[in-house]
Amino acid sequence: MNQNLLPNQFEATPTPEIQAGKKGVEFDFIAWEVELEGVDTATADWAPRTSTLSPDCDDIVFDFDAWEAELEDVDLEEQARLAFDGLLTFETEDEGKTRTISDIKNDIVTFMSNPEIIQMQNMIEYAAVQFAQFCSHNHIGGDSIGDSLSGLFDMGQSLLGEKTHSHDDHHEHDLLGHDEDDEEDEPDGKKKKKKRRR
């Protein structure tokens, strides 16, 4: 009997008795039922850890020959094909398989495209901006915050900088009535692309 059940770590040894088709254990139920009479099940030591008694044991006889004859007209192969079509997949063992850099990059891309991760990233950026604004408002410099928060401060500053630039860009473009990618005429009549400010 397996004593330590962990996923897929069973002893995978078929019971020899089962393979040999050994018959079940004989048990004298009549004697047992006689013995049981008069036992108050409400006060009895109910349900021992390992029960060896069952009034249903006398059911454990089955006429396989009659059953097999009944099955002759049943196309079980076809039923199995329909039931398991595309359902089962063997897993091959991962142990010893070396993951490539490409595997890891793919995992990262998958991870970062998860909507929950994107939402979390947005929240972190929002918190960083709020923190940087708070520090700025209270004239607290990045050097005096300490290592654990300086990363958040730097991120906030950086994001605030981008925001300011972005705002400036829009403002300038609005004034000019052009978009960022608008083209300007050169004196020689050629078109030139306006450079992005980043």
Binding site: T15, E17, I18, Q19, A20, G21, K22, K23, G24, V25, F27, A47, P48, R49, T50, S51, T52, L53, S54, D56, C57, I60, V61, F62, F64, E68, L76, E77, A80, R81, F84, G86, L88, T89, F90, T92
Partner: peptide
């Protein structure tokens, strides 16, 4: 704990099933 028959009682039933026609099921890997 539920009263159950001793597991050895099922061995003839299991052996009977093992004698039946085995259905081959294709499996992807």
């Amino acid at each position: 704990v539920a009263h159950r028959s001793p597991v050895s009682s099922y061995e003839n039933i299991i052996a009977g099933l093992l004698r039946q026609k085995r259905l081959k099921i294709p499996v992807d890997s």
